[in-house]
């Protein structure tokens, strides 16, 4: 199944390279700078999608990630600009806020025995409202510099900087993406917690009867998803230079799309982190090549829909 999405990625890369515009004899799509741009933009969605994958694996869904991204973006921007607390406390507070919101998602879901679709839908609404109140209805712009009212430039280099490696300027979001992916993949494959995640999604009753702490597992995955949304928010504000309450609209759907293209089953119990990462890359490449070809946005939307269905249908066939 994983190979299926990998195959899809390679096929898309080939098609994109073929269709790419050529400038002065150079293939624009294959230029290192362009490829780095793709992974930079895939990273944000990819990180959210990894959290989403955890939740989906337990048989749930997290619709609140986009709104949590907005809330955490406002939180981080406010911490940096209004309260001037410095980089490190900002990062800590923002991640804690995301994890807390996720914890609330999980606790409400398990304690009140609601479907996570409903609880996270409620959180989506609540988080947007809170973000709008907090920001005052306008985005909080970030000005980096050493001045009194400026945000520490260290924050930007930490989340939107570049690292020179092998002669390439690697955007730092890629490092976050890869390390989060590796950590969560290890968590799922090699730890007891990971086994519990798959068991809860595979058959909740059997998992409970096998002594798996089902509620605790669910609360943890939601908290994880919230925290990864917060991490994405930090990358987001460093990229767009502002924390806005309207950001992240529809991000939950992109994250679900990445997970599903990567072979995660919405029924729970089936899916891998690597698959999701590939799914996020596929979506980013698609956006990029359609942009490079200057294709009208309506066609982009239609094409994206078709590709999602195709990707999932092909995996279904493979399963049979």
């Amino acid at each position: 199944m994983r190979f299926q999405s990998l195959f899809g990625l390679i096929a898309l890369l080939l098609v994109s390279a073929l269709l790419s515009p050529v400038n002065n004899g150079r293939n624009v799509f294959l230029e290192p700078q362009n490829l780095l741009n793709i992974v930079r933009f895939a990273s944000e969605n990819g990180i959210i999608a990894i959290g989403m994958t955890l939740v989906i694996l337990t048989g749930g869904i997290d619709l609140s990630v986009g709104a949590l991204l907005a809330l955490c973006a406002v939180c981080a921007a406010a911490c940096l600009m209004r309260y001037q607390v410095g980089t490190f406390p900002t990062v800590l507070l923002t991640l804690a806020l995301g994890a807390l919101a996720g914890w609330v998602n999980g606790t409400v879901t398990t304690r009140l025995r609601l479907q996570s679709f409903i609880t996270t839908l409620a959180m989506l609404s609540a988080a947007r409202g809170a973000a709008s109140l907090w920001s005052g209805g306008y985005a909080i712009p970030l000005a980096f510099g050493m001045g009194k009212d400026d945000a520490p430039p260290g924050f930007r280099s930490l989340f939107a900087g570049q690292i020179s490696l092998l002669g390439l300027d690697i955007p730092v979001p890629l490092f976050y993406f890869v390390s989060v992916g590796a950590a969560v993949a290890f968590l799922l494959k090699r730890t007891g917690f990971g086994r519990h995640v798959y068991a809860v999604g595979g058959n909740e009753t059997a998992a409970r009867l096998s002594g798996v702490p089902v509620s605790r597992v669910k609360v943890i995955v939601f908290a994880f998803s919230g925290m990864l949304a917060a991490l994405a928010a930090l990358l987001h504000i460093a990229l767009v230079n502002q924390g806005s309450h309207i950001d992240g609209a529809g991000y939950e759907l992109n994250a679900i799309a990445a997970a599903v293209i990567g072979g995660t089953s919405l029924a729970g119990g089936v899916g891998t982190v690597l698959g999701t990462m590939i799914g996020a890359l596929i979506l980013a490449i698609l956006d990029n090549i359609l942009g490079l070809r200057n294709i009208q946005s309506e066609y982009q939307l239609i094409l994206k829909g078709i590709i999602i269905v195709l990707a999932v249908a092909m995996q279904r066939r493979q399963e049979r």
Partner: peptide
Amino acid sequence: PVSQAMLQA
């Protein structure tokens, strides 16, 4: 990302 791709092309 949209303007990034445009500038690239």
